[in-house]
């Protein structure tokens, strides 16, 4: 089975795509074309395969009926993706625009090096969430893994749950918001008191994905900036182990 068009109207069509064991290029071409044309796509039997729905453009919407593998939605510049299951490593890696929702848990490096758009994980996110993030937003309703925000250059990572160790390690201008407990801060990461308007902006982001973050005791993690310029007297800061 390949792409199956339902409905007669040229607009708002629902396209069903089976992933299963079919060649990934075919699957992705069908998804990409439908999303670019603004359709709704349902992908059945994704079977945790890698690289699904990469490089999307346009205003369409994809729903995966099951878990996806690595790099789902990566390098996309548009489209909306919903994963009705879990996602593997590098979900939305290099995303520049668009929206990804993972209804389950996400693996390591969600939104790695992303440059824009929004990634919303309803469960937990694995280690190195938002590693080398440049811009855009990541919202995690559950917990975030260790080394979240590692070397993040910009953008926001907002976690309603708890953070594992080494959060915000070696940050540049990225910011990690943690609503729960922080197990341990990373090298050169500091917690600062957020401004009221910054909290309002976070609330606005959360509201935009239908999440209520009110009443949380936000910890805003930013760079202490000691690693930004190497000086011999700070050498101990660089010893990571």
């Amino acid at each position: 089975m390949s792409a199956l068009l339902q409905g007669s109207s040229a607009e708002a069509q629902v396209v069903t795509v089976e992933a299963a064991d079919r060649p990934l290029r075919e699957v992705n071409r069908e998804i990409r074309e439908a999303v670019a044309a603004g359709h709704r796509v349902e992908v059945v039997e994704p079977l945790s395969r890698h690289n699904l729905a990469v490089g999307l453009t346009g205003e369409g919407h994809v729903t995966f009926r099951g878990s996806v593998g690595y790099y789902c939605g990566g390098l996309s510049a548009g489209g909306a993706i919903e994963v009705d299951g879990n996602s593997g490593w590098g979900t939305g890696e290099g995303l520049s625009a668009g929206h990804i929702t993972v209804n389950g848990n996400a693996g390591m490096s969600v939104g790695a090096a992303m440059r824009g758009g929004t990634i919303h994980v309803r469960g937990n996110a694995g280690p190195r969430c938002g590693v080398a993030q440049k811009a855009g937003d990541i919202v995690v309703e559950g917990d975030i893994g260790y080394s979240t925000g590692f070397m993040s250059h910009g953008g926001r990572i907002v976690c309603l749950g708890n953070s594992r160790g080494s959060v915000g390690d070696s940050l540049w201008e990225g910011v990690v918001w943690v609503g729960g407990e922080i197990e341990r801060l990373g090298i050169d990461a500091v917690v600062v008191t957020p401004e009221a308007e910054e909290v309002a902006e976070v609330d606005e982001l959360l509201a935009s994905v239908g999440v209520d973050g009110s009443g949380l005791d936000w910890k805003k993690v930013v760079a202490g900036q000691k690693l930004w310029y190497f000086e011999a007297r700070d050498a101990k800061q660089w010893l990571m182990i």
Binding site: E45, L47, S48, R49, H50, Y70, G88
Partner: peptide
């Protein structure tokens, strides 16, 4: 190593 390998045994959730 990868979840997709497990899906060859467990196709359903």
């Amino acid at each position: 190593t990868e979840e997709q390998a497990l899906r060859s045994l467990y196709r359903d959730e």
